[in-house]
Amino acid sequence: MSLNEYLIPVVVVACLVVGYVIRVTPILQPARESIPLIVGILGAILGGVIQGFTVEAIIMGAVSGLASTGLNQVFRKTLNLKEGASK
């Protein structure tokens, strides 16, 4: 099995958006260090909701949630965005 078989695109996008909102919202700044944990748990929950609560669906959701963190970093490095920049 390849990694692509474990990714759920809807979960990746949803977690990417949630992570971005946490990062740019001033009141949520204390949770900024916990973004990977938050999107991992959110991904596991969404994976279970979308595909049924099986161990495989929960793992697929968690992997998708964590992949959104990596995807965010790829965007930031590609676009040369600074850590404090909101865009």
Rank of each mutant, 00 (worst) to 15 (best):
A85P: 06
F75L: 13
L7H: 01
V21P: 05
V21R: 04
V21C: 08
K87F: 15
T78W: 00
N72E: 15
S64G: 01
P30W: 02
I22W: 11
G61C: 03
K87T: 15
I45S: 07
V49H: 06
S64N: 01
Q29V: 13
A31C: 03
I27V: 13
G43E: 10
T69K: 06
A85I: 12
T25S: 13
R32A: 11
S68C: 05
E83K: 12
I45R: 08
V21E: 05
R32Q: 08
K87N: 15
V55R: 01
E5C: 07
V11Q: 02
V12C: 14
I38T: 06
V10P: 00
V63F: 07
P26G: 14
F53L: 10
G40W: 09
R76S: 06
K82F: 12
P26F: 10
I45H: 11
V21K: 07
L7E: 03
G43T: 06
M60T: 14
Y6V: 03
G70Q: 02
A44G: 15
V39L: 07
I8P: 02
R76P: 02
S2Q: 07
P26T: 15
I27F: 09
A57K: 02
K77Q: 03
N72S: 14
F75P: 05
G70P: 04
S2P: 11
A57E: 04
E5A: 11
K77N: 03
T78K: 00
N4T: 11
G40H: 03
G43Q: 10
K77S: 08
L66G: 03
R32M: 07
V13K: 02
Q51T: 05
I27R: 15
S86P: 07
